[in-house]
Design a protein around this nucleic acid. Structure first.
Lengths: 386, 386
DNA sequence: AACGTATCCGCAAACGTTTCCGATATTTTT
DNA sequence: AAAAATATCGGAAACGTTTGCGGATACGTT
């Protein structure tokens, strides 16, 4: 009944234990152990994507020939090339990027990690980056860390596993450890940081001149007669917070105004914290007459708080934000804000990463590109004269 | 000087033409043609990512054993498993997802194509989808068609080449041909359409009850005494436009108001067109007293136009939008709008695609999930009494 | 005619995994 | 103690590409 898979004999077969739940046999003649091949369960019909091999078989040529035809390699006659291309579209061939990437050890994909997706800022950057990358034949693998260090590490692991050729990243505000980013550079995968950068790593960065933007914003408030200017700052560990704080401080100093510690208060960029700290500021015994907020959502929250308290803006309270979110133009009489070139920032980061990918020597010196900001003056900060 | 690579003789070597620019030699003895192996240009030092094979070699085991240790396969002793895991972290091993996907012919990635990135809507959907997908161990490959049919086709090609396991898509408004989407289903890759769906394809969709949302919006306007209600509609080929138009029309009919063709005007969802058509509407001899816009950006543009013309909202003009963008809450006295469950829409689409991926039989019946909307009533549409 | 050259194509290795199945060694059962 | 079962491991094929190099012609030249 059972025949030896070597000698085809039937009489010399005996059972010989179990392997992985399957009966095992021994042919006494051949001294050969074997199990019966598992009955092919034909439930899952394998959906076949047509491959280069299919085309080759169809035309009776080798796969190398097909590959060459598909890539414009010179070593091929016009006739076969034409035939192969026709067969390719006739069989609806779609190249397998995975196999390609495996052999070339290059994925033509760059990863980007952003903290969140809900303000305008990061989507705008992504649009800018995607433009130049897709023109260069690269794809973008977008991940969001959700402002969590843990998921950020998970993101990097996924991108590493997918063998991205480069990484563009703006860190979560929880991030104080940079090993997961350095893992890329250790493997020769270039990294470009933008917006949320850190000082500890000296590599390629593209940022906005936060200091100057903040300085001008506060200077503008002073020019409009505000004298007791508070700063709703960002998380202490972020360079953007530090730089904007520095701009705030130095502008006050330049015009001889006191820098009062109680008027600088660190939040976490969210409106929830802004509501709490903003209320605190406005309910001080000696409240500020203007607030420079670290970003637009928090500035808007201040605006709403002021409205709720019956404070007139800009007469009793001046407000300036940062980023020029699309809401800024429309809220109240408009929110004065420091506009960042978001799209350009994405483009710049993308161009930088492309340059780093092509010159895979590390000859290229680390640099940080600083983009300029623009102060957009609206109703929230200009009071009549003075 | 030149020695045969077969018999090592030197004397019987003669030149024999050129191949690809390289001198070719013939050994008379062996009758063997050969060229000199190209001098290894050692410029590009190959950066090696440590592989399973490295670990195997390090420990003197086979790669199958390493693979088993890394995946919790039972056929392995605790000792070797421990040793392998330690070697893996010591060598800083990162699995190669590409090779994995190649052999499993499954990428653990689903693609998503959206028309744009600049309104809140699609990022919100993406956040929702990404949540459930990442919990299920899947990654999201995000692409934007930029409202262009061409780039949409390019996007699908890229996703196909990357062998995504499923596709979630909201079509560009240029799209009238669906072959590039059907290519996925032809290959057994499930597709879920959302928001911008078409009637021609009967597959899995998740949409919002646009009809009902529009109906209620217009009903609300009527209840607030508006009688000459215009509709700034979307592109004719989009189902969402058609459904919202239908809701508008039927609401008018229900309350015995005439449906005037000159008060329905089709735009393309952009503010630029909205500005033109909105101005046209407001400058009619007999202008409308309310406008129901197909989305929030265009509704806001109407609001701005009204403000510029000195029209009082809501007294002289009622306005209702669609989507509840984050600006809607803040502009003027607030924009009444039909809120869409964007995050939920992403979640639903993702859950659906996961279900379709797992049951790779086509047993699962095509269905379209309809989510409910909510009318958010704000200042732009409620006038005192009547 | 004889040789040098150009053109075109196939073979096979490599990329990094997974997985089936056979081979031992070890333990348990009878 | 022989036989049966179990526990571990290795070999090798497979996934779909690319590519270096050799082989076989065809096409020139003298």
């Amino acid at each position: 009944m059972i025949e030896c898979s070597k000698c085809q004999r039937v009489e010399s077969i005996m059972k010989a234990g179990f392997v992985r739940g399957k009966q095992r046999y021994l042919c006494k003649d051949c001294n050969y152990f074997f199990t019966l091949p598992s009955a092919q369960v034909p439930t899952k019909r394998k959906r076949h994507q047509t491959t280069i091999i299919d085309i080759a078989r169809e035309l009776g040529v080798s796969n190398s020939t097909v590959s060459r035809a598909l890539h414009g390699h010179p070593d091929i006659s016009p006739d076969t090339k034409k035939a192969i291309l026709e067969a390719a579209i006739q069989l609806d061939y779609q190249p397998n990027q995975l196999a390609y990437s495996l052999v070339k050890s290059r994925s033509n994909t760059v990863g980007i990690i952003v903290p969140e997706f809900l303000t305008q800022f990061f989507p705008n950057v992504i649009v800018g980056a995607q433009g130049v990358l897709s023109r260069a034949g690269y794809h973008l693998m977008i991940m969001q860390s959700d402002e969590s260090y843990e998921t950020e590490v998970g993101n990097t692991r996924a991108l590493l596993a997918n063998r991205v050729d480069g990484l563009i990243v703006s860190m979560s505000h929880e991030t104080n450890n940079y090993e997961h980013f350095q893992a890329f550079e250790k493997r020769g995968v270039p990294v470009v940081y933008f917006n949320r950068v850190c000082r500890e790593i000296g590599t390629y960065k593209v940022v906005v001149n936060d200091y100057q933007g903040a300085f001008r914003a506060v200077e503008h408030l002073i020019a409009n007669g505000y004298r007791r200017i508070a700063h709703l700052a960002g998380p202490r560990n972020l360079v953007i917070s530090q730089e904007r704080l520095r701009g705030y401080t130095e502008a006050l100093q330049k015009y001889g105004l006191p820098v009062l510690p109680e008027l600088t208060i660190h939040g976490d960029l969210t409106v929830e914290k802004a509501r709490i700290y903003g209320r605190y500021l406005l309910e001080l015994d000696h409240p500020p007459d203007a607030i420079f907020a670290v970003n637009d959502p928090t500035a808007i929250e201040i605006l709403l708080l002021a409205r709720a308290k019956g404070l007139r803006v800009p007469e009793q309270l001046g407000v300036v934000g940062f980023s020029d979110d699309s809401i800024a133009m429309h809220i109240g009489n408009g929110l004065t804000t420091v506009k960042q070139p978001t799209n350009l920032m994405g483009q710049t980061a993308a161009e930088l990463i492309l340059k780093l990918i092509s010159e895979d020597e590390d000859t290229y010196p680390a640099e940080t590109q600083v983009l300029e900001t623009e102060l957009i003056i609206r109703g929230s900060s200009v009071r009549g004269g003075r």
